[in-house]
């Protein structure tokens, strides 16, 4: 018989996590319950759904902190997120459809760490930091160091994800996002990209460019970031396109082809810079 615990507070959750590392940690359950009726029941369930200390979206001190238990619906409806972290709100709106957005959580996306996790390139582009906790204490991990391979992360066996901390982009930083899925809604990504680009006029001062679904994990494309630094936007678009190809390892699967993913990844990244040029014109 499967044990079930719904902890009242974070301490109880962390204690249970330490005591039962084999239990399934469940929140929105939108990934872990797929075909659940045909899978072996877990030894136990540690249910974090609506655990108050991790269910928040809070803007303060130059950052927005989003609790691991916040749903994508809460993220996309948060005024501060929509204003300051538009790509995250946009990504949230493209995660599944309404039923999934109402349950799926930031912690789930980050913890599952699927290569097609829709929010993950945004977290990279926005330079998020993750806060994790265990009975041993709390620590912070820059999100760019979080993913260690295909669906593997730096989360220890006794740890839980508490929150993501996202610094507010400065006034000269523009952020962009695009998902290319199998259809217009309720779709798995074929390619997605996010970028935060800091400009001085039409010159790129700094850029963080991230792609998803083109490698075993979401990735920052350092070659692109280096290639565009100091360039005017028009040149940056060309430089970025050229730098994307060698940096990614897309695959053929039932959803798309490596060559399509490669071409679209190049187009998306080039468009991020090109699109800003058009906006700068206005």
């Amino acid at each position: 018989m499967t044990a079930y615990l719904r902890p009242r507070d974070l301490d109880e959750a962390l204690a249970a996590r330490a005591a039962h590392p084999d239990w399934m940690v469940l929140a929105g359950a939108t990934d872990l319950m797929v075909n659940a009726n045909h899978r072996a029941a877990p030894t136990g369930i540690l249910d974090l759904w609506r655990l108050a200390p991790i269910c928040f979206v809070r803007a303060a001190d130059g950052e927005i902190a989003i609790g691991a238990g916040a749903t994508w619906l809460e993220v996309e409806r948060d005024a501060a997120v929509c204003t300051h972290l538009a790509p995250l709100a946009a990504a949230a709106r493209e995660i599944g459809a309404l039923q999934i957005q109402a349950r799926a959580t930031l912690g789930g996306n980050v913890g599952t760490s699927s290569p097609v996790g829709d929010s993950l390139p945004v977290l990279l582009a926005l330079d998020a930091e993750l806060e994790v906790a265990s009975v041993r204490g709390r620590r912070r991990v820059p999100y760019r160091e979080w993913c260690t391979g295909y669906r593997t992360t730096r989360l220890a066996a006794d740890e839980l994800i508490v929150a993501a901390h996202l610094p507010l982009p400065g006034p000269t930083t523009r952020t962009v996002w695009r998902k290319v899925g199998t259809r217009r809604a309720q779709s798995i990504s074929k390619v997605m990209g996010a970028a935060a680009i800091t400009l001085d006029g039409d010159v790129v001062i700094d850029a963080r460019v991230a792609l998803g679904a083109i490698a075993d994990r979401p990735v920052r494309i350092a070659a692109v970031e280096a290639a565009v630094r100091g360039q005017r936007l028009a040149d940056a678009a060309h430089a970025a396109r050229a730098a994307v190809g060698p940096a990614i390892q897309p695959i053929d699967d039932v959803r798309s082809t490596a060559s399509y993913r490669r071409e679209v990844a190049e187009n998306l990244v080039a468009r991020f810079f090109h699109g800003m040029m058009q906006r700068a014109d206005r």
């Binding site: 199998t182 259809r183 217009r184 809604a185 309720q186 798995i188 039932v254 959803r255």
Partner: peptide
């Protein structure tokens, strides 16, 4: 090879 509704897709309301 795509025997599920995730990958054997049909149009949604939005499509």
């Amino acid at each position: 090879a795509n025997a599920n509704m995730t990958n054997c897709i049909v149009p949604t309301f939005a499509d």
